[in-house]
Amino acid sequence: MNKKFIILSIIMLMPLCLAQDISVEKLLAYNKWSSQNQRAYLNEDEKLYRQIVFFENLQKIKEHNSNPNNTYSIHLNQFSDMTREEFAEKILMKQDLINDYMKGIGQQATHNNANNETQMNSQNHTLAASIDWRTKGAVTSVKDQGQCGSCWSFSAAALMESFNFIQNKALVNFSEQQLVDCVTPENGYPSYGCKGGWPATCLDYASKVGITTLDKYPYVAVQKNCTVTGTNNGFKLKKWIVIPNTSNDLKSALNFSPVSVLVDATNWDYYSSGIFNGCNQTNINLNHAVLAVGYDEKDNWIVKNSWSAGWGEHGYIRLAPNNTCGILSSNIQVTA
């Protein structure tokens, strides 16, 4: 980080820091958190800056959790020395890519001719009161994308992993890194490694080339050169569909298998547990791809994230019903 920026940020944040009356308790909290998260900074200036950011975030967490009206709690985690802007820059997808996707560029790789079939099925399908594919053994362990905006590859890999289990009774971890390295504009796909991309492009790629296992192509959290050749590289899907934008259609799809969904995760950074309803519903920005694995008896959505099992509810978040965080906006599902 630029030293002048750090110094300027310290000057700007210092009044907030002084106003909080930094106590021994807060210093101990920082030291404990820093040790647990193995933080090492370039110099003392950056360390001081990160401490100030941490103290401000700690205060926000305490204020949120002290409000009995909130339906979810937040907690310290790996993002606690980041500003909201840094979190968006390092973890979420870039806004220009999102804008292009919403204009239709990202949808070019999907099989849209299956939409009518999805709508007809949802109208005639008896929905379960609740469903959770984790209890059926169809969901792999929670992964960690690191400081790389590769959520799209994790969402797509998880979708294919679950379908492979449902179809072939084998729970296999697929390679997100293969998708990051190979699903690129150079290969004809509008996805951009750690800057962001689209699960649909991964499905298009895997249907032609196949996706190999995580063991054979490990994740490194940076984009590298594609090392895959040929068109017979493991699991190959045959068909996928776009899910219409209603709660009943998403629930109907989840009765068949997990679903790849796009969401606005701007305010997800410190989520710990409970029913999340903290998105600005009047200004939804789809900036993160995850996997919906079910819903509960109260219609809360159960979602698998890719920020490690230490985040949220062992790597999961429960979203309030309906279109919370834009979860109904752009969803796909493997069907064959």
Rank of each mutant, 00 (worst) to 15 (best):
L42I: 08
R318D: 03
W240S: 13
D144C: 04
V53W: 05
K208F: 04
S141I: 06
Q147I: 02
S257C: 14
A158P: 02
A19H: 11
N322Y: 15
D269Q: 15
V220T: 13
V242S: 13
G315R: 04
G104M: 09
A88I: 03
A29G: 01
K103G: 06
V290D: 01
N267S: 10
W198I: 05
G106S: 09
S257Q: 08
I10K: 10
L286F: 06
A221W: 00
P244G: 04
D181T: 10
R84K: 14
Y49P: 09
Q167M: 05
I74Q: 10
F165A: 02
Q147N: 12
S329W: 03
A206F: 02
A221F: 07
N323G: 01
G146W: 08
P15L: 02
A292N: 11
S141L: 12
I11K: 10
T213W: 01
I6K: 07
N300T: 09
N70Q: 05
K143Q: 15
C202Y: 04
Y270A: 14
Q333T: 05
F165W: 12
V222M: 03
N112S: 13
F5D: 11
F87W: 10
F174Y: 11
G230C: 01
W240I: 08
Q281Y: 00
S273K: 04
V263S: 01
C194R: 12
I211W: 11
N248C: 06
K47F: 07
T184M: 14
H314E: 07
N280M: 03
M14N: 15
N57G: 06
S207P: 09
Q20D: 14
Q59V: 06
L262V: 00
G149T: 12
T266Y: 09
L262D: 04
S141K: 07
N31F: 14
F87S: 04
V261D: 10
E117W: 03
F79K: 00
K251Y: 03
G197L: 02
N225L: 13
W311E: 07
C182E: 01
Q223N: 02
V261C: 09
K94W: 07
S260M: 04
G326C: 01
P258Q: 12
V261Y: 05
K90I: 12
I98A: 11
N2C: 10
K103R: 11
S23D: 00
M82N: 07
L76S: 09
W198R: 09
T246Q: 00
G294V: 03
F87K: 07
A200M: 06
N37E: 13
I91H: 00
D100I: 11
E186W: 01
D269P: 00
R134L: 10
D181M: 07
K251W: 05
L18A: 06
W133R: 01
N116Q: 14
Q51H: 14
N248E: 15
R39D: 06
N70Y: 13
F276G: 04
T229R: 06
P15R: 05
M160D: 03
C202T: 06
A138Q: 07
K90Y: 14
K216C: 01
I241M: 10
C226W: 04
S73M: 02
E86C: 08
H64K: 10
N115E: 15
Y217L: 13
H288P: 02
C226Y: 06
S260Y: 03
C325R: 00
